[in-house]
């Protein structure tokens, strides 16, 4: 009887434990748990931006590691190529036209780049591309 009694207490406790343990957040940190295909580079324009995970950080050059996660978008327009990177607390924009590159940086968020529904400018239709899906922030 003692064993049965102990078993009942253990089972009830486990049920309570399971029911009241706080759920692991899955939607709050889109950066480190991105949707599938987050590293894929699509060739079509108009797809949403992607938040790359800090761990893989595939947008960086091989061998470089950082805890900076970001979304990015790149497109071409006429003779200019543009990259926008959204980092955790700042953004960077590089525009290259001919031999000159214009580097901009600022704090905060680049106009919704990492938000669902944001689209890369389609430009002239050449080489406009973006990556994958947007995890919910």
């Amino acid at each position: 009887m003692k064993r049965v009694s102990n078993g009942i207490v253990l089972c009830v406790s486990l049920v309570v434990l399971t029911a009241f343990t706080p759920a692991r957040p899955t939607a709050t940190y889109g950066w480190d748990r991105p949707s599938v295909s987050n590293n894929r580079v699509a060739s079509e324009a108009g797809t949403a931006a992607v938040c790359l995970p800090a761990a893989s950080n595939s947008g960086a050059e091989p061998g470089t590691r950082t805890r900076l996660p970001y979304c990015h978008c790149s497109w071409s327009q006429g003779s200019c190529s543009t990259w926008v990177h959204q980092f955790a607390q700042e953004w960077e924009m590089h525009i290259n036209c001919g031999g000159n590159t214009y580097e901009y940086q600022g704090s905060g968020e680049w106009g919704g780049l990492c938000r669902p529904g944001w689209e890369c400018p389609s430009g002239s239709g050449h080489n406009s591309h973006n990556s994958g899906n947007v995890p919910h922030l």
Partner: peptide, 15 residues
């Protein structure tokens, strides 16, 4: 690193 970036317009733009 706070990934919940403030929803504000970019400020202090540098070139």
């Amino acid at each position: 690193i706070s990934v919940d970036a403030p929803h504000t317009a970019p400020q202090d733009v540098q070139f």
